[in-house]
């Protein structure tokens, strides 16, 4: 199908984008890479009155090293994220996003704002404790990713706010493992593990409305428990539902296995 008609505004600045969104009174939508929004428009699951294209806003596509971590402008494309060398965990996760043609267009800000709980970047953001930087009519604000994600495809973003950058702390050690039936599909289960400031953090995608942090499993991991115990604890902490792709029980079993895989390279030290 074809999208329903809309007005199109090519924003030249963050201020203009925010102003246009505010004027749209809730009927505006931000167009970044479009890899999730365009299908939604084509299927007419959404009919925004105004599309605010942010692709030409200068300065939003920068990758800036910050305290060992990295600050990604909202317009950093997945293809570039996959090849950058500042943050290996982000590079690995980006390689799992869709297909090459999707990664050419898809953006960091778009993925975070879309907040699909089965998408790679939200899971990595939750695992690292990333900070989302947001511009609105009242100025800038920032929020920790796990607070920013409010539910499936839901965030705390107001109708007239725009994600401008996401700051990902460095991981001293990390692992990423994803299970999908076909290459490029959204993961049925995906796991990001990251040691940040000496503490391991885990985030699991595909098993809830937002990326899930299994806090008991994290505690066990930081206390030096074996990987099997950590994996079992993580599986016990998630409550995945049945859907057309997999049963909840299956997703729980895969959670244990993919926590194991994400941590496998660090098995000995994590268990020491």
């Amino acid at each position: 199908m074809k999208p329903a008609p809309f007005d199109y505004v090519r924003a030249g600045s963050v201020d203009e984008a925010v102003r246009t969104l505010a004027e749209a009174g809730g009927e505006g939508k931000v167009l970044a890479g479009g890899q999730s929004l365009m299908p939604v428009l084509a299927l007419r699951m959404a009919r925004p009155r105004v599309l605010v294209d942010v692709n030409r806003i200068p300065g939003l596509a920068t990758i800036t090293p910050v305290d060992g971590g990295v600050r990604l402008g909202a317009l950093v494309r997945h293809a570039r994220l996959a090849t950058q060398q500042n943050h290996p965990l982000l590079a690995e996760a980006a390689r799992w996003i869709g297909h090459t043609a999707i990664r050419t267009r898809g953006t960091t800000g778009g993925s975070i704002a879309h907040a699909d709980p089965s998408a790679e970047l939200p899971v990595v953001a939750a695992a690292l404790g990333a900070t989302v930087h947001i511009a609105g009519p009242g100025g800038q604000r920032s929020e920790v990713a796990t607070d920013f994600f409010a539910g499936p495809l839901e965030t705390t973003l107001a109708e007239d706010e725009l994600v401008t950058a996401v700051e990902f702390p460095a991981a001293e050690r990390w692992g990423f493992a994803e299970f999908s039936r076909r290459h490029g599909d959204f993961g049925l289960v995906l796991v990001a593990a990251a040691q940040v400031d000496g503490r391991w953090r885990l985030a699991i995608g595909g098993v809830g409305g937002v990326p899930v942090r299994p806090t008991e499993a994290e505690q066990l991991l930081n206390d030096g428990a074996g990987i099997d115990a950590v994996a079992a604890a993580a599986a016990a902490e998630v409550r995945p539902q049945d859907d057309i792709h997999a049963s909840g029980d299956y997703r729980r079993a895969m959670t244990a296995e993919f926590v194991r895989r994400a941590l496998a390279p660090h098995g000995k030290r994590a268990a020491a």
Binding site: Y8, R10, L31, G34, Q35, M38, P39, A42, D53, N55, A79, T100, A101, I102, T104, R105
Partner: peptide, 13 residues
């Protein structure tokens, strides 16, 4: 130079 889905990009873009 990069591959894109032409159905996921607007002509005006």
């Amino acid at each position: 130079g990069g591959p894109v889905r032409a159905c996921l990009m607007l002509a005006v873009q």
